[in-house]
């Protein structure tokens, strides 16, 4: 049994949480890496002028972190099919975002799982979303020892 096989997952299974410290560096690096030069993501004075208490994370970085949360967990063979997110409370510097995920459906036929993701920070829900990920099929050959260890640790011997 491949550890990352979608058949080992069942609706209701929870992914371990990932804590992401929201540093000023992360916000700025994420904005620049996504080629988003909106001032509210790097210039605190201008952000305040627009009614925000500080700079805040851009949606592309949130999207990237959500994608990373899923692939970190399902292993390097996992393929993202769909990521749909909605933003709520902004990620300001000094906060911490805790990403949690719950499997909401599994399709054995096409080897995909749908995972509901929530990223909560100190002021509320920064992000809510749904990710569809393929974790079965011939991609199993790519799954290395690391993924097996991560997955094995989480699901134990349980198979559905």
């Amino acid at each position: 049994m491949s550890a990352a096989d979608v058949r080992t997952w069942a609706p209701g299974d929870e992914l371990p949480a990932l804590e992401v410290p929201i540093t000023r560096t992360l916000i700025v690096a994420g904005a620049i890496a996504s080629r988003d030069y909106q001032d509210v993501h790097h210039d605190a004075e201008l952000a305040k002028g627009k009614g925000s208490p500080d700079i805040f994370m851009n949606i592309l970085t949130t999207n990237g972190l959500v994608g990373r949360y899923i692939t970190d967990h399902f292993g390097p063979g996992a393929v993202l099919r769909k990521v749909a997110i909605r933003l709520g409370a902004p990620n300001y510097p000094g906060d911490t975002m805790v990403l949690t995920g719950k499997v909401i459906s599994v399709s054995a036929e096409d080897g995909t799982a749908q995972v509901a993701v929530v990223g909560a920070n100190g002021i509320g829900r920064h992000v809510t979303g749904t990710v569809t990920v393929s974790v079965g099929g011939d991609i199993g050959r790519d799954i290395g020892g690391e993924a097996g260890r991560v997955m094995g640790g989480d699901i134990g011997g349980e198979a559905s």
Binding site: L26, A29, A33, S34, T61, G64, G67, R68, D72
Partner: peptide, 13 residues
Amino acid sequence: RHWCEAMGDTNPA
């Protein structure tokens, strides 16, 4: 690479 560094994403893919 710059994206992965910012996101802390070490996925070998």
